[in-house]
Each structure stands twice: as structure tokens, then as C-alpha cells.
Design a protein around this nucleic acid. Structure first.
Length: 246
DNA sequence: GTTGAGCGTT
């Protein structure tokens, strides 16, 4: 009864107040918060969302209280408390686990139906069902930590940029300048070399200028490892050695 | 191994 982070079906939340605990360390576990929150009221359950890939906590936890007054007290008492060397932020949860309507942390009723269609078979799936389909996108969207993502991306981006070409900035100005200085007008646009009249006629007759060429690059298949050809699998460098010479 | 401004599960 002490371990809240244990697996298992969540308890009924018909009369529970969810508190959102933010700013907690990534190492803080439900057991660490339990004694803290339990001191201020009766805790129904504590849940800390963790990353499914790594299993690490995302940096926030949900504490469900039985009474609102206790929850409120905990919010005021634990909000800003130093936990594991970090100041945690406690506040009432705004969203419910199942899209329930929450009023001041308390789940009032399930998702209300907008409009009044009592029998509307909305194809919209539930939260969990959606996970299966777009769990990838969803995860990326609200990754565990923005900075973490950005940080990693930045690092990669920086290195990538450096690898690319620091002087190869593709700017409209640069392009213009370069094109005029380096490339000839003909090379720049062979179609442009034609008379405007021709261009107009052609454009109308042939195709619209707006039509972009999706097949700008030939569908050439990239050979990831041409050396991996099965032909070269043999380590034999002398094909003749196997040739029977008489 | 890291990080940080956010809302949840068997």
C-alpha cells in the first residue's frame, strides 16, 4: 500500500482531487512524494508519468487526494517545497486522465458533449486508442522535456551546419549575387533565354508555371553499401586461383 | 550520463 508507482488498474477517480506536481527531479519517485503529501492529507494514489522508452520520470507527478481541502492544503504547503534539491510546484490538475472535466482538481464529470447530440457516434477515438496510432507523433510533440529535445537538436544542428558548408549560405541575396556573378544568364534559366512571348505561349500551351516538378530528382535508388554486394563476399582476391589451368 | 516548463497509467 505504499508503492503507488506499482502497475495495476488505477483506482476510481469519481471523488478524487488530482494535484499536479511539477518541477520535481527526474529521480523523484512516487514513494518520495508519498510521505510528503501524505502528511497533509489522505492520498488516494500517486502516479508519475514515465517515458515508455526509457522509463524515466518525466519530471512531474500526479497526486490524488481524497478531499479537496486537504489537497488545497498540500498545494499551499508543498508548493515551492524543496524536494531532492529542487523546488517542486504543486497545483490542481487541469486535465483529466480520461478527458474528464476537472473543476479545481476535482473530476466533475466525463467529457461533456458539445452541442447536444446525445447519440452521436463520433469516430474520434479515446486517448489510449489514439496512442497506438500516433503514439510516435504524440510523443514527439510533447516530449518529456522541451529543452532536452531542443538541446539535442541544437547540438546536432550545429554540427551538421558546420559539416555542410559555412560559406554556402543559401540566401536569396547570395543566390542573386552569385548567379549574376558566376552563372551566365543562359545557364541560369535556359527557359528564360527564350523570348517572353515564347515563354508565355509555351507556359500556356505546355504547362502552368505553378506546376512544380515533383520528380525533380530521379528515383534513383541509393546504394547504401555497394560494396556489400554478394559478389564480393568472397575474400578471394584471385579468382584465377580457383580456375583450373591445365 | 545529461535535461526542465509541463497535465496521467494496467
Amino acid at each position: 500500500m505504499s508503492r503507488f508507482g506499482r502497475s495495476g488498474p488505477p483506482p476510481p477517480i469519481r471523488d478524487t482531487y488530482s494535484l499536479l506536481v511539477l518541477n520535481i527531479t527526474f529521480r523523484t519517485t512516487a514513494d518520495d512524494l508519498f510521505p510528503l503529501f501524505d502528511k497533509y492529507g489522505e492520498i488516494v494514489d500517486i502516479y508519475i508519468p514515465r517515458d515508455r522508452r526509457t522509463g524515466d520520470s518525466r519530471g512531474f507527478a500526479f497526486v490524488r487526494y481524497k478531499y479537496e481541502d486537504e489537497a488545497q492544503k498540500a498545494v499551499e504547503r508543498l508548493d515551492g517545497r524543496l524536494v531532492d534539491g529542487r523546488e517542486i510546484m504543486v497545483q490542481f490538475a487541469k486535465y483529466g486522465p480520461n478527458a474528464e472535466r476537472i473543476n479545481k482538481g476535482r473530476i466533475v464529470e466525463p467529457v461533456p458533449r458539445p452541442g447536444g447530440r446525445s447519440r452521436s457516434h463520433s469516430p474520434r477515438r479515446r486517448y489510449r486508442d489514439d496512442y497506438r496510432d500516433d503514439h510516435d507523433r504524440d510523443y514527439r510533440r510533447r516530449s518529456r522535456s522541451r529543452s532536452r529535445d531542443r538541446y539535442t537538436r541544437d547540438r546536432y544542428r550545429d554540427r551538421d551546419y558546420r559539416h555542410r558548408s559555412p560559406s554556402r549560405s543559401y540566401s536569396p541575396d547570395d543566390y542573386k549575387k552569385r548567379g549574376r556573378d558566376s552563372l551566365s544568364p543562359e545557364r541560369r534559366s535556359p527557359r528564360r533565354s527564350r523570348s517572353p512571348d515564347d515563354y508565355k505561349r509555351r507556359g500556356r500551351d505546355s504547362a502552368s508555371p505553378a506546376s512544380k516538378s515533383p520528380s525533380r530528382s530521379p528515383p534513383r535508388k541509393m546504394s547504401p553499401s555497394p560494396e556489400r554486394s554478394p559478389v564480393r563476399r568472397n575474400n578471394d582476391r584471385s579468382p584465377r586461383s580457383r580456375s583450373p589451368s591445365t
